[in-house]
């Protein structure tokens, strides 16, 4: 008998929680992007789990598109990090308070 879907769903939920905690607590923009990747992977795992339990390939197709969007997001995000670092010589998000009213 194969592993029940609920086991993978719980692992994915915990993985999402770890990513969310890191996103909320870490200050470096680079680490925050990595935590976003963790959360995206948790969602990917959920999609694949449901694709198996529903016997529908649509879940895997969704993961394929999430991969593309994640690649685009990281490319533009790291471009922004590089641009910010050129001006501020820091990637700490605490120091990016120029728009504060």
């Amino acid at each position: 008998m194969t592993i029940p879907a609920s086991w993978f769903l719980i692992v994915a939920a915990v993985l999402f929680g770890i990513g969310a905690f890191g996103l909320l607590t870490r200050r470096s923009a680079l680490i925050m992007f990595m935590c976003v990747e963790l959360m995206l992977n948790a969602v990917n795992l959920t999609f694949v789990t449901f694709a198996r339990s529903l016997q529908d390939i649509g879940g895997q197709a969704a993961v394929f598109f999430i991969l593309v969007v994640a690649a685009a997001e990281v490319t533009v995000g790291l471009g922004i990090v590089v641009a910010v670092f050129r001006r501020r010589h820091s990637v700490s998000v605490d120091e990016l308070s120029e728009l504060k009213g």
């Binding site: 993978f8 990917n44 694709a51």
Partner: peptide, 24 residues
């Protein structure tokens, strides 16, 4: 792989571990 998504497993390694982490 455990959940019969072999293509996505390969893409996961190639795109995430290969491209995105190298970009980081």
């Amino acid at each position: 792989v455990e959940m019969d998504a072999q293509f996505l497993a390969a893409v996961e390694i190639i795109v995430y571990a290969g491209a995105i982490v190298v970009l980081f």
